[in-house]
């Protein structure tokens, strides 16, 4: 979907068009889910976080920063906040979350992703990500994992481009060399 198309959908959504909002959900839900899986301990927490992030997208629709026509960066940042607070965040939306189905069936791919058995880098990445402060988590996720430019990242985080560059530089020096090299490839 073109960014322009998403921007039209977003405009319709905040005007009260539920189907347009649902299409934005369709567009971003899996990417948000994967992002969250890197930060939480269980698939159930990740599912709750996705639900809360989209409910927050609606609740805070007036304040959402749309970057290059997309709400995706805002969703990723918000989801990161929510993961830090998932137990407490869920209190606000408990009633809604309780209405969502809870399957006992193992969600293999997600669980495998969480367990880090798919890709040799994932356990390291997950471990390093969880050890970072919130803003570093957000920057690393947006720049290195989600492919946003530093300028886009600066815009959605509301900080200067110089600050993003500086923090990413520090991050590269701090992270495990294997990850640092990978990040360097994606951001330089």
């Amino acid at each position: 979907m073109e960014a322009q198309e998403e921007q039209v959908l977003w405009g319709e959504a905040i005007a009260g068009d539920g189907e347009s909002f649902a299409r934005i959900f369709d567009l971003h839900r899996d990417r948000v889910f994967r992002h969250v899986l890197r930060l939480v301990e269980s698939v159930a927490d990740a599912e709750d976080t996705v639900a809360i992030a989209f409910m927050e997208l609606w609740r805070r629709r007036i304040d959402v920063r749309v970057v290059n026509g997309s709400v995706m960066p805002w969703l990723l940042v918000t989801a990161t906040y929510v993961t830090r607070n998932v137990r407490r965040s869920s209190l606000r939306y408990r009633e809604m979350l309780d209405r969502l189905p809870r399957s006992d069936v193992s969600r293999d791919a997600a669980q495998e992703f969480l367990g880090g058995s798919i890709d040799g880098l994932e356990p390291l990445l997950a471990s390093e990500l969880k050890s970072l402060g919130r803003q570093d988590q957000q920057m690393l996720s947006l720049v290195a994992l989600e492919g946003y430019t530093m300028a886009e990242t600066a815009e959605v985080l509301g900080i200067s481009l110089a600050a993003v560059k500086s923090r990413m530089h520090r991050l590269r020096r701090r992270l495990h060399p294997k990850l640092s090299a990978q990040i360097g490839e994606t951001t330089t």
């Binding site: 959504a13 009260g16 068009d17 539920g18 189907e19 909002f21 649902a22 959900f25 369709d26 839900r29 899996d30 889910f33 994967r34 899986l37 599912e47 996705v50 639900a51 989209f54 409910m55 609606w58 809604m96 209405r99 969502l100 189905p101 399957s103 969600r107 791919a109 997600a110 495998e112 992703f113 798919i118």
Partner: peptide, 21 residues
């Protein structure tokens, strides 16, 4: 592998969002 949100949950959440909006 790219895990995705459980389809059953996605459908239910989609409905919740439409209702909310």
């Amino acid at each position: 592998t790219h895990p995705t949100l459980d389809p059953e949950i996605a459908t239910a959440l989609r409905g919740e969002l439409i209702t909310t909006v």
